[in-house]
Design a protein around this nucleic acid. Structure first.
Length: 555
RNA sequence: GCGCCCAUAGCUCAAUUGGAUAGAGCAACGGCCUUCUAAGCCGUAGGUUGUUGGUUCGAGUCCAACUGGGCGCACCA
């Protein structure tokens, strides 16, 4: 519709002697938006306001000239008028809106999909927590957001790879192995002064216990780096995958940082940076000369111990992402890592890589409230709430929904008590209820002998011209914008837009339901209304699929 | 001290990427079930968008400064 109006306006501009070309030359594009106020029509363009300067005319005069010579199909556009400071408002016909119903039914579970992504090879890297403990609530926000971004990009025609980057070497993992070793010794009856900087969680004891159950006391002399670390990594990773699985999240690739060493990629990066003259030695460490390429301060890339800092593998990993052919690379992490990526991007750029391909999405923290108090969390200490616990309390659907409800730029307050207590009043139920309600209507209609299946196939039982009530038009109108919403969610990386939209759909449906009865003696009208129900159910279900929440047939 | 993020109704958040009269949900109050699911619908009330300037036809949105909060500023990730 926007394309149609745009072409009509362009030809009206040239017909009326106003140069459409001079507009495009000055970068003025004809765009449309949906006015907030109903009386302003269905689509509005501000082109006359933008053109006023270039054409040296009053906006309203330009708008009027356009309308004087515009040629519009009366089957689609009911009214076009100049309004306010010079907006051109278009009001569409009911028939146009009702045509959305057929379009939704035709596309079915693919309604909302597009190919605007052009099969762009896209990688979404998220979670990427090292296997040192169970996933926490903070990881949960990352995981759910990342998975949903991946969904949205798939819906807009991107070729998406979900990737989890992890490190099973290094200091953290050594400490993990030693933590298990010490707990194991405790089980053997030794008195252990458990170090404060070790992992305090109960899960460490459990892993030690498993080792004891299988090996008895035979591991007393084993090293922390050996079986203890390996067993810990294996068990923890299994748990992590299980937790993610409960939220419907599965990765295509688990990328081990260690492989970057094994294949010499780390050395290649050092060599490349050396060659570019961007490194120097100081205090026994190797530094990246970030200040030479616009950075704030130089950074250590190889410690005096000979171990690289996280930056080096991160750089190497991103070079690998490019090498593997990803045209869009999305990195998702929490705000505590906010300082880490500028250096990495800087190094990539100075090595000649196109960092425009990299999109870094940073989410703010999740603050957990319990018993009216903020729960301060730390993976090392045992006082964190795990993602699993959260899922146990409020269910996977609510977890996903709550994490997606808000823009990632805002802090997320998650009140555990409230979430537990009010689990039945969660906003997610409002949406799911609409879906279940439709399912129930369909069952009832079926019992009454209405051919639901044939209507879904677009059979001739319906006559949409019978749909004249404002609730029917309103609902059809809302359904038709789903593809645009998915598109917007993808281009802004803001999946919460889909939630807002689905709320509108549900609201619009509930209103329709209350005013218009579906299953009525007039079979033609009943079938037509049923078609709206079917289309609504499809849109809701498709939206739920993107968000990763279930679409219940019954509640 | 420096960098990034944030500030909108009593609370939690939206606001179509700069549009016309800033919207929802909770909480409060008043209505609606002999009819396809009341986990629902309708109505009432609630605001100087942290402050001050600037940019322009037009600012919650962009710029600057300030105030208040979060996260960083490692030879941890």
């Amino acid at each position: 519709m926007k394309d149609y109006l745009k072409s009509r306006i362009i030809s009206a501009l040239s017909k009326s002697g106003l140069s459409a070309q001079s507009l495009t030359e000055t970068g003025i594009d004809i765009t449309f938006e949906k006015p907030k106020i109903e009386s302003h029509g269905d689509l509005s363009t501000n082109v006359a306001l933008l053109a006023a300067k270039v054409l040296k005319m009053k906006p309203r005069d330009i708008a009027q000239k356009v309308l004087d010579s515009i040629d519009l199909d009366p089957k689609l556009v009911e009214k076009a008028e100049v309004a306010g400071p010079g907006f051109i408002n278009f009001k569409f016909t009911d028939g146009y809106f009702l045509s959305f119903i057929e379009r939704v039914l035709e596309a079915g579970e693919n309604f909302g999909r597009s190919e605007s992504g052009g099969r762009k090879k896209t990688q979404v890297e998220f979670v990427s927590a090292n296997p040192t403990g169970p996933l926490t609530v903070g990881h949960g926000r990352n995981a759910v957001f990342g998975d949903t971004i991946a969904n949205v990009l798939q819906w807009t025609g991107h070729d998406v790879t979900r990737e989890y980057y992890f490190n099973n070497a290094g200091r953290q993992m050594r400490v993990l192995g030693d933590s298990v070793r010490l707990r194991y010794k405790e089980i053997l009856g030794e008195k252990i002064d458990f170090p404060e900087d070790h992992y305090q969680g109960e899960y460490i004891r459990e892993i030690a216990q498993h080792l004891y159950d299988e090996h008895g006391s035979s591991l007393g002399d084993a090293s922390a780096e050996g079986i203890f670390k390996e067993r810990a990594e294996q068990e923890i990773f299994e748990d992590i995958k299980k937790s993610l699985g409960r939220l419907g999240i599965a990765f295509d690739v688990f990328y081990n940082e260690n492989s970057l060493y094994e294949t010499g990629k780390i050395k290649e990066v050092i060599a490349a940076l050396d060659k570019a003259g961007l490194t120097y030695e100081k205090d026994g460490a190797k530094w990246f000369k970030a200040t030479a390429v616009g950075g704030e301060q130089d950074k250590v890339i190889v410690k005096s111990t000979g171990e690289p800092t996280y930056r080096l593998p991160d750089i190497a990993y991103h070079i690998e992402k490019f090498r593997r052919g990803f045209e869009l690379v999305i990195d998702i992490f929490g705000s505590d890592h906010i300082a880490t990526y500028p250096d990495v991007l800087l190094a990539l750029r100075s090595l000649g890589h196109d960092t425009e391909k990299v999109k870094v999405l940073i989410h703010q923290f999740v603050t957990i409230f319990q018993n009216g108090e903020v729960v301060k969390m730390s993976t090392r200490k045992a006082n964190f709430i795990t993602l699993d616990e959260l899922i146990d309390w409020v269910g996977a659907d609510a977890v996903r929904f709550f994490f997606l409800m808000r823009n990632i730029g805002t802090h997320l307050n998650f009140d555990i008590d409230l979430a537990k207590k009010q689990s039945e009043e969660n906003p997610v139920f409002y949406l799911q209820y609409a879906h279940a309600r439709i399912a129930s209507i369909l069952r009832f209609a079926e019992d009454e002998g209405i051919p639901v299946g044939r209507i879904r196939q677009g059979g001739s039982e319906t006559d949409f011209s019978l749909l004249k009530e404002k609730e029917e038009i309103e609902l059809s109108k809302t359904l038709g914008t789903f593809p645009e919403v998915v598109e917007a969610a993808a281009s802004t990386y803001e999946p919460h837009r889909i939630i807002g939209y689905l709320q509108e759909v549900a609201e619009s449906f509930h209103r329709f339901y209350h005013v218009q009865r579906v299953v009525i003696p007039d079979r033609k009208l009943a079938a037509s209304r049923l078609a709206i129900c079917l289309a609504t159910k499809i849109v809701l279900a498709n939206g739920f699929r993107i968000l990763g929440i279930s679409a219940p047939e019954k509640m």
